[in-house]
């Protein structure tokens, strides 16, 4: 059994961990949206006027 399996978090530690996890999730979603928008802006009208 790993040492970590014995660790019992207090309700306060669990609450803090949950808010940290939510913040990381929001940060990652924000990054995905940002990269998507940057790609669209960088492509601009080029995608429409490309040689076929």
């Amino acid at each position: 059994m790993d040492d970590r399996d014995l660790i019992e978090l207090t309700p306060e530690q669990k609450r803090k961990r949950r808010t940290r996890s939510i913040a990381i999730a929001l940060f990652l979603v924000g990054l995905v949206v940002l990269f998507y928008l940057v790609t669209i802006v960088k492509l601009g009208g080029n995608i429409a006027s490309r040689a076929i």
Binding site: D3, L6, I7, E8, L9, T10, E12, Q13, K16, R17, T19, R20
Partner: peptide, 10 residues
């Protein structure tokens, strides 16, 4: 059980 004093950062 084991208590852990870390993990309290907001």
């Amino acid at each position: 059980r084991v208590e852990w004093t870390g993990g309290s950062a907001s």
